[in-house]
């Protein structure tokens, strides 16, 4: 029998900064799908989407909008925003324990003493959590497709929204994994991630209102008619969704001349934040980095 860990193989893998990604990704996905949490999550998620769907249809029916193509648009928008909100809520649940959970289970040293690199560990964890969220949201695709049946929403819009949601999954999971690698407790990692998501969703809107108020007070009438700056809204995870789910809404609000695409700039912002969070997580996971921890002697 040949020696399973040979020199040629070593030479090849030594240069791979993501060594260990594949086995960890598969293990994470397997772990996420096992136990009671996965079926409970799927059930609750789909139940909420059905409630939103039924609510919109009931309102449309009672308001006499039956057969109106706007019903499909409203249905789609309601479900798209619900889905994005659920992603932001569930992402930390499935990612906050990525590294902190390894420390709590006392499996972290075992993991980092293997040939896996820090990059392989972090990206494997992120891919595992994102993979689960992708499967989860894919399960609601038939419900979303109902909007297409009602009319007013094209397949490209549906897929664009799913693409934006994929970016947000990576964003929120990256934040959670970074928090998880920096703090020792899953609970604290989840709390930190929820605070960051809260700030992104609500604080950006608040800062935008403040900024626009200050601007209108400072400028004369002519200047007020010029295009407003919406810098803070780029950081809002719902801004790109709004733009994608409601094509043309930006022009109707008169923002067209002022704004570049929320999808492009907002997407770039979220991608950059994700990259920064992942870099931080890779650094924090390395067992040989300089650290300032309490002594652990024996």
């Amino acid at each position: 029998m040949s020696d399973p860990v040979g020199r040629r193989e070593v030479g090849r893998e030594m240069s791979n900064p993501f060594r260990g990604f594949a086995p960890l990704f598969l293990r994470e996905l397997k772990g996420q799908m096992r136990g009671r949490r996965a079926p409970v999550t799927f059930t609750v998620y789909l139940a909420l989407m059905v409630v939103v769907l039924a609510g919109v249809l009931l309102v449309a029916d009672s308001s006499g909008a039956k057969g109106d193509p706007t019903v499909g648009q409203v249905l789609f928008i309601a479900m798209a925003f619900t889905q994005t909100a659920l992603i932001l809520l569930l992402g930390p649940v499935f990612a906050a324990g990525a590294i902190a959970g390894e420390r709590e289970r006392q499996t972290f040293e075992t993991l980092v003493s293997t040939r896996m690199t820090s990059g392989g560990i972090v990206f494997g964890k992120v891919a595992g959590a994102v993979g689960f969220l992708v499967v989860l949201t894919a399960s609601s695709l038939p419900l979303m497709a109902l909007a297409y049946v009602f009319g007013g929403v094209g397949p490209s819009t549906i897929f664009a929204v799913y693409g934006w949601d994929l970016l947000l999954m990576i964003w929120v999971v990256s934040l959670a994994v970074a928090a998880s690698s920096l703090v020792g407790r899953t609970l604290w990692a989840a709390v930190i991630t929820y605070v960051l998501v809260f700030l992104a969703v609500f604080m950006t809107g608040f800062l935008e209102v403040v900024q626009m108020s200050l601007r209108s007070a400072a400028l004369d009438g002519a200047a007020q008619n010029s295009a407003p700056s919406v810098f803070f809204l780029y950081a809002n995870p719902f801004s790109g969704l709004w733009e994608l789910a409601l094509p043309g809404a930006r022009e109707e609000l008169g923002l067209e001349t002022a704004l570049r695409s929320f999808t492009a700039y907002g997407g770039a912002w979220h991608a950059a934040v994700s990259a920064g969070a992942l870099g931080l997580a890779v650094w924090a996971v390395s067992p040989l980095r300089r650290r300032w921890a309490r002594p652990r002697l024996a």
Partner: peptide, 8 residues
């Protein structure tokens, strides 16, 4: 899993 982690 650990076999794969060691590159086997």
């Amino acid at each position: 899993f650990f076999g794969a982690a060691y590159g086997l």
